[in-house]
Computed example of a mutant assay.
Amino acid sequence: MPIDDAMPVRLEAAGTKPEEAEELLTELYGGKLHVAASDAPFSYRYAAIGDETMTLRTSKFGGRLAGELQPTDEVVVQWLQSGTSVLDTGGQPFQMTHGVPVPLLAHRSFAFEMDTYEQRLVHLSRPLVERVAAEQGADVSGGIVFDPTMAPSEQAVRTWHNTVSLVSHTLRESTPGRLLHAEMARLVSASLLEMYPQQQTGNEAGSGASRSAHVQAAVEYVHQNVHLPITTTTLAKHLDVSLRALQEAFQRDLQTTPNAFIRRVRLERVRQELRAADPTTTTVRQVASAWGFAHLGRFSQQYTAEFSEYPKDTLANT
């Protein structure tokens, strides 16, 4: 049962045959995988819930799993709860420690060997993680870079587990709307970057702390209130800073203007909704208008420039 990236993800599978588990995981992840029984009777269970920006997953094997996976457009974070797992990301192989999350390198293949284990995983959209990192002042011109052999701080690991627990409870107990799910995905991404910080840009390193705080507060406010008629003026008033100071801070830290940032976030929300909508009952005009784009032609140009795809094609491919 493949996971459709354009639809909400809800998957549960379990069984007692190694060949079924191997077929399932190969369909989900690709690559070269091998599943085999160990001394005890073989069994497996796999579950996933979320959407294309973030899925929370569990994997439990009463057997052995080994293989090599290729790069994807996702950042995968995994942590063992029991059993053993050895990872090889192209350097020195290392054994995972129970409870310590390890991010897999999205831009590199990796090999692994696991035996009689239970683990948790979070799959995050790599563009989302890169955007959150950039908003924090990181240099992502070369993409996100993780060192999976680096031990994160105990406090950062606790924050990660608390964050994932909160998000998991919300997903299990209800079906959150698109705004809440998007904010939860951003929160998990920020928690990941707290454990494995990215290199900061020279501009960010040399800027004043108060200015960086203003930009971060503005970014958070936009994501939480982008469904409202926000402008650069109202944003500056909310932060109690001058319009010019806000514009200069955005240009320095994010290399964009506040208006362009607001527009990009709204375009992202439109894309999320189009990818989850039913094309037989939803139109591009309806979704665009709901997110504040009154001129359909201009919106279509902006959307295509941002995502290299016409909005009607995004909707048609759901």
Rank of each mutant, 00 (worst) to 15 (best):
F110M: 10
F110G: 05
A111R: 15
R126Q: 14
R126I: 05
F112V: 04
P127F: 02
R120Y: 08
H107D: 15
H123S: 13
V100A: 00
L128E: 06
E130D: 05
F110C: 04
P101G: 05
F110I: 00
L104A: 08
V100R: 04
D115P: 04
M114G: 02
P101E: 03
P103F: 01
F112P: 00
S109W: 07
M114W: 06
L124T: 09
S125L: 04
Q95E: 14
R108V: 09
T116K: 13
G99A: 06
P127T: 04
G99T: 04
S125N: 12
R120F: 07
E113P: 02
A111E: 06
F112E: 10
L104W: 13
L121F: 06
V102D: 02
Y117E: 01
Q95M: 10
L124W: 00
A111F: 03
V129I: 05
R126L: 15
H123L: 14
V100K: 06
A134G: 08
A133R: 05
R108P: 03
H107C: 07
T116N: 15
P103Q: 04
V102S: 09
G99W: 09
M96Y: 03
V129W: 11
H98M: 03
M96V: 12
R131Q: 09
E135H: 12
R120S: 09
H107K: 09
R120W: 13
F112G: 11
V129D: 09
V132T: 11
T97Y: 03
A133H: 03
E113I: 09
V122P: 01
E118K: 08
E113Y: 10
V132M: 11
D115C: 12
P101L: 05
L128F: 10
A134R: 11
P101W: 00
L104R: 12
V129S: 05
H123D: 08
R120G: 00
H107L: 10
Q95V: 11
M96W: 04
L121Y: 06
M96K: 04
R120H: 14
R108H: 12
L121A: 15
V122L: 00
Q95N: 10
E130Y: 09
R126F: 06
L124A: 03
V102N: 10
T97S: 14
S109F: 07
V102T: 15
V102W: 02
E118I: 09
P103R: 06
S109H: 10
F110S: 11
P127Y: 01
V132K: 03
T97P: 02
S125M: 14
T97V: 15
F112R: 10
T97G: 01
L124P: 12
M114C: 12
F112Q: 09
P127H: 02
A106Y: 09
D115R: 12
Q95P: 00
R120M: 12
E113L: 13
E130C: 01
V132S: 08
V132I: 06
F110V: 03
Q119I: 06
V100C: 04
Y117S: 05
M114Y: 05
T97R: 15
M96L: 13
F112A: 05
Y117G: 01
F112C: 07
V102A: 03
L105D: 07
R108T: 07
P127A: 05
E118L: 13
L128V: 07
H123M: 14
V132R: 11
L121R: 12
V129E: 08
A111T: 12
E135K: 00
L104M: 14
V100M: 05
L121S: 11
A106Q: 06
E135W: 06
F112Y: 14
F112W: 08
Y117K: 00
G99R: 02
V129K: 10
H98D: 04
Q95S: 15
